[in-house]
């Protein structure tokens, strides 16, 4: 047991650096994919066929691509176009691009739970598409979106570990460093597991809070 704790205390800085970058990646991609995913979702339910087609193409292209491939594209292919982005921003962009497709679909399914008559009544009052969406449809759709949205974000938090394969020092990179230092892998992996469980707890709490907050809005 003492050995188990020693693994953490002897390598504290590495764990702190790794998980700090994991949290940074997560927060940047969470905000980025919420914005981009909402825009894509709005496109997919918009009255403009070209926007709907763009949204559908984006989702089908990105959602069906392995995340590792999206990372590889940004890290290896984009520099060939003489666009140089550092590893960390590349990872943040890859996660944002990928997660947005899932966020888009959660938003669209939430929108679909709101009766069509609600949007129709709003349009009949003279509201613009943006007003119909932000004042009438999305507030009612939020309730249905919370559980699947949290699943998307929890999956994204774990997906950050793919960045380790592309030269970003985050939690997923810790085992390789620890192997070099000759530390027991079992203890290392357990500590990383505990780290992720701790990071996911606030997300679970947030889900509970939002579900309660929006529970009886009628």
């Amino acid at each position: 047991m003492g050995e188990f704790f020693r693994v953490l205390t002897d390598n504290g800085q590495l764990f702190v650096d790794g998980f700090t970058n994991t949290v940074k990646l997560f927060l940047i991609a969470a905000v980025g994919s919420l914005v981009l995913g909402t825009l894509l979702g709005a496109m997919r339910v918009s009255p403009v066929p070209a926007l709907r087609a763009f949204g559908a193409t984006y989702v089908n292209l990105v959602r069906n691509t392995p995340l590792t491939l999206v990372f590889a594209f940004l890290v290896f292919a984009v520099p060939k176009l003489d666009v140089n982005i550092d590893y960390f921003p590349s990872a943040a962009i890859a996660l944002t691009v990928y997660t947005s497709a899932f966020v888009c679909e959660v938003i669209r399914s939430g929108v679909n739970t709101v009766a069509a008559g609600q949007a129709e009544a709003a349009r009949a009052l003279g509201m613009t598409f943006g007003q119909v969406l932000t004042l009438i449809v999305l507030p009612q759709a939020l309730r249905a979106m919370v559980p699947p949205m949290m699943s998307v974000y929890i999956a994204m938090l774990k997906n950050t570990t793919i960045a380790a394969g592309f030269s970003v020092l985050e939690a997923g990179a810790i085992p390789a460093y620890m192997a070099e230092r000759g530390e027991p892998q079992f203890a290392v992996l357990l500590w990383i597991t505990i780290g992720f469980l701790i990071l996911i707890l606030p997300l679970v709490a947030l889900q509970r809070f939002l579900e309660r907050k929006w529970r009886v809005a009628r």
């Binding site: 609600q118 129709e120 009544a121 009438i136």
Partner: peptide, 11 residues
Amino acid sequence: MVFQSFNLFAH
């Protein structure tokens, strides 16, 4: 416009 199913904003 007044609809058959009222369509009042539920929230």
